[in-house]
Write a protein that binds this DNA or RNA. Structure first.
Length: 298
DNA sequence: ACCCGTGTTCGCTG
DNA sequence: TCAGCGAACACGGG
């Protein structure tokens, strides 16, 4: 489930649930070792006694900074992969299925890192030196916290022959854009996802940058509406069927284009699904026709 | 059984 | 050497 907006919600949850609290005990289940790859399995128990100071999100990565005593800092890096979640439970509650790591906090709250498929990552980072991790150092700017530098974004895209939709998934270009946000933002910008990245005009790149931001903001808003909390911040995710699909076109193959009717004859487009680099892409062939698309306002 | 999946990495190929 | 893909990872759900 996790792209930038979902991870942002997880970061906000962790801040609310755990900041300033001390970890009384920590444990990992047997299969959690896979989450430490490629590093040596870490003793999660070493987190006991540390206090959560801050939670930062960079792209799809969660960076928790903890303090032990006055001087010592340590970090916890987690990446939710495909099925990772941070959930909160009370001291007496049963652990959710597929819980891999649990942190018992002072006051009775338990933070549970849950991951069924275990494509995620979980690692203790000595000194909270996150930038020493190659996975973090390689990240491009975060569209939400850093903004998109139009000139840099355009320069980078201008060198790529790869389809623009595939390029958007490259975390060194922008950190946090995933398969959903890529399709959604290209729809908002009216750009055909199959076009080579380098073929986009300056105006299209600018439109795309704004559309990425708009799509992320929109998605964040739908999560807030869905229940920012209330006691159990188990956000309903699309694939779990617990929430309506909140997206404009993602997962809507065969549906009429939400932009409505186009052209003099008033025919609406139909959303199609194609596969690019092994990933599903959704778009409207009628209003995302790239260079031929008439300029905005239509 | 088969296909699909909001992510990342590895290895092959041209 | 490098860009670009498909496969692999793992485990459900439809």
């Amino acid at each position: 489930m996790p792209e930038l907006p979902e991870v942002e919600v997880a970061a906000r949850n962790l801040r609310r649930w755990g900041t300033k609290r001390t970890i009384r005990a920590a444990r990992a289940d047997r299969r959690a070792a896979r989450l430490f790859r490629p590093a040596t399995p870490t003793a999660v128990e070493a987190l006991a006694g540390a206090r959560l100071v801050s939670v930062e999100r960079r792209g799809k990565n969660l960076l928790c900074t903890l303090a032990r005593g006055r001087a010592e800092r340590l970090g916890v890096w987690s990446h939710l992969g495909m099925t990772g979640k941070w959930l909160r439970r009370g001291a007496q509650d049963p652990s959710p299925p597929a819980t891999r790591v649990e942190l018992d906090l002072a006051g009775g709250t338990r933070l549970c890192y849950v991951d069924r498929r275990m494509f995620g990552r979980f690692r203790i980072v000595p000194g909270a030196r996150f930038d020493d991790l190659p996975e973090i150092a390689a990240l491009g700017p975060d569209p939400l916290t850093d903004g998109i530098d139009a000139a840099g974004f355009a320069a980078r895209l201008g060198r790529l022959r790869t389809p623009i939709k595939v390029a958007l998934l490259d975390q060194t270009l922008l950190a946090g854009v995933g398969n959903i946000q890529a399709s959604e933002s290209l729809f908002r910008a009216g750009i055909d996802p199959r076009r080579p990245a380098r073929s986009l005009s300056a105006a299209e790149v600018k439109r795309l940058a704004a559309a990425i931001r708009a799509s992320i903001d929109f998605t964040l808003g739908t999560f807030a509406d869905a229940g920012a909390d209330g006691g159990k911040a188990d956000i309903g995710y699309v694939e779990e069927g617990t929430a309506e699909n909140p997206f404009l076109i993602y997962g809507r193959a065969g549906a009429p284009c939400p932009r409505g009717k186009h052209g003099k004859h008033g025919k609406h487009g139909t959303i199609v699904r194609v596969v690019q680099a092994g990933r599903a892409t959704f778009f409207c062939p009628r209003c995302q026709n790239g260079a031929q698309r008439r300029s905005r306002g239509g």
